[in-house]
Amino acid sequence: MTEQAFLSIIADELMLDSTKIELDTPYRTLPTWTSLNSLLVVSRLHEETGSMITAADLAKFNTLAELYSLISPK
């Protein structure tokens, strides 16, 4: 998945303008980052990539780039 596709999914699930978010954005500061919306992000990324982001990952990391690193091929 490209960075652009990843950011587009994040924007879609959080109902945000994709031009307003970047990989170095701390996701917890996004205005629509709620427990339900974080679940929607996890669910959609699993649907699109097969990768699972855990609750521990979300607690440990800070930026969207760190989440992207979890789902992009090494």
Binding site: S35, L36, S38, L39, S43, M52, T54, A55
Partner: peptide, 12 residues
């Protein structure tokens, strides 16, 4: 309830 953990376990 940890919604993400429940989702991950359920779907996996």
């Amino acid at each position: 309830l940890n919604g993400i953990e429940v989702f991950n376990y359920s779907v996996q």
